[in-house]
Amino acid sequence: MGSFIANLLLATVRMASPLIFLSLAELYSQRAGLVNIGIEGLAAIGSLTGFLISLITGNPLLGVLAGALAGILVNMIFAYATITLCAEQIVYGMAINIFAPALAAFTYRVYFGSGSELVQVELMGTMKSMFGIKSDNFFVNLFLDQTPMVYLAYILVIVTAIYFTRTKSGLNYKAVGEYPKAAATLGINVIGIKYLSCIICGALAGIGGAYLTTCYSKTYVDGNVAGRGFIALAAVIFGRWSSGGVLIACLFFGFCDALQIRLQLVNNTLPYQFFQMIPYVATVVVLAIIGAKKAGPRASGQPYRKEER
């Protein structure tokens, strides 16, 4: 039982990491007033790109980097449509959710042909294996049996918290999501920050997707993001648009994910699908419980136009 809990906790930390990237992506987007429900799609393209590049170069870190780039590129479509053309954000996010996975699936087909054999890629090593540590102590595992990406995720949470609460730039950034017109009268470059938010969002979503193929699973399959992009949306609401809150939400959802995997392994009476439902059902239940206290950036979802009368 002790090892069950230890393994559960270790898995929680690991499973929360991709969610943290994706949720922070959404957080940066919404803080600038852009609700991007296309995170799922951005993660899909990031995942495929990460997979391909780490396969080609043999370097998972390069894969992650390429995943970030791919996320940025695709999110620039969203940026142009919603910021410059003032397209409805929800609708356009949906378009991204259709476009990006299709692009990922197509690229995979073209690269590997229609053969059914799954190509495998070498995963990123953990710190423990890198330093050749042999100990199997729980704390060693918790803190060292992790890939660099896990550290990056948690560092980003701290950096984000500091950015939005302690820096001048972060304050300006938040003002764009709250009241862009007021921000503009204070000389803040509203359009610029909105585009910047899309770059950050695309990069983080791409990294979150690439995590899945460089640190989590050796193969790429269509739909491997498995709704994490949407759970990230819930995590941002659950986390009340703060970096710390998002972390707690992601740990919770990561725990649900870890739990379902662990339960599948120990239980063989119930069909495994019931365990797989846990993260999704948990999301619905959590949203139902917290209700809809209107919170979050005030200008979220609204287009911003300059000379208006």
């Binding site: 001048k168 938040k174 003002a175 009241y179 017109k181 007021a182 921000a183 803040i188 950036p297």
Partner: peptide
């Protein structure tokens, strides 16, 4: 042109 979610101080130093 005040950001309601922020404090007086934050509004003054904004930008």
């Amino acid at each position: 042109m005040l950001v309601e979610a922020m404090t007086v101080f934050e509004n003054i130093i904004l930008g």
